[in-house]
C-alpha cells in the first residue's frame, strides 16, 4: 500500500468522523448542565472527594473531552498518553510507559498458523494474557485453541475447553483470535466509529470512544472480540508496563477488547507475545508486503486456507499444513 493511498484513506476517515460524530457535540451540551458529575462518569464510579486530588479530577475532566484517536494530532495523542500515565500513577501507583507510535511504512501484518504443528500446549494463551494485561478474575483470553477431530476444519465442532494431557493421539489443534480482516465487518457495525483498521492492517479499538454496545462482537463471524464486564484485575507485579494507547493499556470497564497483534510490540519490530511463546513454531508472523518474509514464504509454498473464506471478510490469518 503506498503512503499516499494511506493518507487519502486517513483524510476520508477523518471527514467521516467529523460529520457523523454527534456524540461529542451532544456531550458538550450535556456537560454544561452536569459539570460536576461528569468527571465521575469517566471512571464509572464516584471518587470520594478527599480521595481524588484536584489534579486527578482535572486530568479526568480533560480525558473525558478528548477526541477519537483518529482525529487527534500527534500533540493531542502525546497529551492523552501523558495524562493516562499520570492517572495510572495516581490511581494505582503504577509507572507505565505508554506510546501512541504510528504504523510503519510499507508494512502490512499477517499471520499464519500451522495446524500440523500445534500440539495444544496453550503457552501462547498465557503469554497473551500476561502481555496484554487481560483480566485474571474472569480469565479473559483473546486466543482460543480448539481440539479438533481429524477432517474437521470448523472450530465450532471442536472442544475449546479441553484440559488433559496433550497432544491427544488422532486429534489436531486449531487456534483462533482476531483475524484482522481486511474487509472487517466489525468495524462497519460500530455506531461510534470506535473501532477501525489501521494502515498496517491491525484492527483496533479506541477504548475511550467505545460505548460498549457490543454490535461489533455480534458482527464478527469468528472468535475475535471480548467484552469486559469490569476493569481488568491484575496483580500489580504482573502488569506489563510498556503499553500502547490502542493496545495493551489497562482498559476501563465495559469496553470491547481484542487481539491487536500486540501493536505495542509489532510496531517496534518485535514478534507478538503468542508467536514468541509458542514452543512448537506453529505460529508465523510478519510483513505481507515483504516478498522475502517468512509469512510470504508460507503463502507461496504451503497449502493454506482461511476460515469461512466465502464470507468475503478477507482475514489476514491463514491456516496451513506441513
Amino acid at each position: 500500500m503506498s503512503s499516499k493511498k494511506i493518507k487519502n484513506k486517513e483524510i476520508r476517515a477523518a471527514s467521516l468522523l467529523e460529520k457523523k460524530s454527534t456524540r461529542r457535540n451532544f456531550l458538550k451540551g450535556l456537560s454544561i448542565a452536569a459539570a460536576a458529575g461528569s468527571a465521575a462518569l469517566t471512571t464509572g464510579c464516584i471518587p470520594a472527594a478527599d480521595a481524588a486530588s484536584t489534579e486527578e479530577l482535572k486530568l479526568r475532566w480533560q480525558e473525558f473531552f478528548k477526541k477519537n484517536y483518529r482525529l487527534m494530532t500527534q500533540e493531542e495523542k502525546d497529551a492523552t498518553v501523558a495524562r493516562l500515565e499520570r492517572l495510572s500513577k495516581l490511581n494505582a501507583n503504577l509507572d507505565v510507559q505508554m506510546g501512541s507510535y504510528p504504523p510503519l511504512d510499507g508494512v502490512l501484518y499477517g499471520y499464519a498458523f500451522n495446524i500440523t504443528r500445534c500440539e495444544g500446549f496453550m503457552e501462547c494463551v498465557t503469554a497473551c494474557v500476561k502481555e496484554n494485561n487481560l483480566d485474571r478474575k474472569t480469565n479473559t483470553q483473546y486466543i482460543r485453541i480448539f481440539e479438533m477431530e481429524p477432517g474437521q476444519l470448523d472450530p465450532s465442532t471442536g472442544d475449546g475447553q479441553y484440559y488433559h494431557e496433550v497432544p491427544v493421539d488422532n486429534k489436531f489443534y486449531m487456534g483462533t483470535q482476531c483475524f484482522h480482516c481486511e474487509k472487517a465487518p466489525c468495524t462497519k457495525a460500530c455506531p461510534t466509529k470506535a473501532t477501525w483498521k489501521e494502515p498496517d492492517g491491525i484492527v483496533v479499538v479506541d477504548y475511550d470512544w467505545c460505548i460498549g454496545c457490543r454490535y461489533c462482537q455480534a458482527a464478527c463471524p469468528y472468535y475475535g472480540r471480548r467484552f469486559n464486564w469490569g476493569k481488568p484485575e491484575i496483580p500489580k507485579e504482573e502488569v506489563t508496563r510498556r503499553q500502547h494507547y490502542l493496545g495493551n493499556r489497562i482498559r476501563p470497564m465495559g469496553k470491547m477488547e481484542k487481539c491487536t497483534f500486540c501493536i505495542q510490540r509489532t510496531r517496534k519490530g518485535r514478534l507478538p507475545a503468542c508467536v514468541e511463546a509458542c514452543p512448537t513454531g506453529a505460529r508465523v508472523f510478519g510483513n505481507l508486503l515483504d516478498p522475502e518474509s517468512e509469512i510470504r514464504y508460507v503463502l507461496k509454498h504451503k497449502k493454506v486456507f482461511r476460515m469461512k473464506e466465502e464470507l468475503g471478510t478477507d482475514p489476514k490469518f491463514w491456516y496451513f499444513i506441513d
Binding site: M122, T126, I145, Q161, V166
Partner: peptide
C-alpha cells in the same frame, strides 16, 4: 532463527505430552 536443537532434544526429538499451560472458560 532457532536452531533445530533449540526446540528439539536431538536424542528424543518428539515433544513430550504434558498438560496445557492454562484452560479456557466459556465465551459469553
Amino acid at each position: 532463527v532457532y536452531n533445530c536443537t533449540t526446540c528439539h532434544n536431538p536424542h528424543s526429538p518428539r515433544f513430550e505430552k504434558r498438560f496445557p499451560a492454562t484452560y479456557s472458560v466459556e465465551l459469553d
